[in-house]
Design a protein around this nucleic acid. Structure first.
Lengths: 135, 135
DNA sequence: CAAAATGATACAATTATAGTATCATAATAG
DNA sequence: CTATTATGATACTATAATTGTATCATTTTG
């Protein structure tokens, strides 16, 4: 019942760390040191963020990662989608098939209402808004 | 990232079904028929609900389960706690330990805000409110 | 070419969820 | 008292998601 997984958590922290950096490019190993995360896991996360277009990367000496957009432009929900798929608080499956009462099922409706509000709130959280109050 | 697991889902449906029943007591097997759920799984769920005090049970012929409280008095969050533990949208663990920035970590704070509102909404959902609009 | 970086990808461990199976116990009818 | 019908307790298994690890290839720069 976690809303965010460790994947997402690590990714957000990495994005924050990159955003805070003075140099524009920072290498994976530097991030590992700053964030004290398992190296291969973070590497995979960075690769994914790059593939999904949130980071840019450069190889070779002096290479590394940089934000592809401004910290205001990167939302939490975007990162969540990458690592956890689309937000769906109620799958409401019944064995392999959908709930037979799917149409008049009020439990689903109520969860869906909650989901909508959660999504609105998640969209409002950006890397920049996470960093803002941190010092 | 599901908010409710199948355990909870089944339990809620069973509670609804029991609440709708005319006779006060309904057996596990009758519920299996009505709800089309895996028999041993539902049985376990009913046992748990009984142990946790949401149901009362009686053995032997004519026995079965009945609600221990009125449908208005049983909240969704109560059922979730039983099957999923306390609501914690952000565990925010860092390997085995807590996030080192735990105190000034704004990501956690923001998730916590969302969590609070979700809890309020979950508390407002009762068996009775789920049944209400169903016919 | 060597070193420093990322890219791709396959594999493994752990945990949570979902489900099954079995035997014990209690209540009731006859 | 015994057969039947019901729940109680509990141990086991299967599946999927999460959380990692490991390895080799490729690109860039000096």
């Amino acid at each position: 019942m976690k809303l965010i997984t460790r994947n997402t958590d690590y990714a957000v922290r990495a994005l924050c760390c990159i955003a805070e950096q003075k140099q524009e490019v920072i290498s994976g190993d530097q991030l590992v040191k700053s964030l004290e995360m398992p190296r291969p896991f973070l590497r995979k996360i960075l690769q994914t963020l790059n593939k999904e277009g949130l980071l840019t990367s450069s190889k070779g000496k002096g290479g590394g990662f940089a934000l592809a957009a401004s910290p205001e432009g990167i939302t939490l929900i975007e990162v969540m989608k990458i690592f956890q798929g689309p937000i769906k608080l109620s799958e409401h499956k019944f064995k392999k098939s959908d709930c037979p009462r799917i149409n008049d099922c009020l439990l689903k409706k109520k969860i869906d209402e909650i989901e909508k509000e959660v999504i609105v709130k998640l969209k409002a959280i950006t890397i920049s808004s996470i960093l803002k109050n941190r010092r």
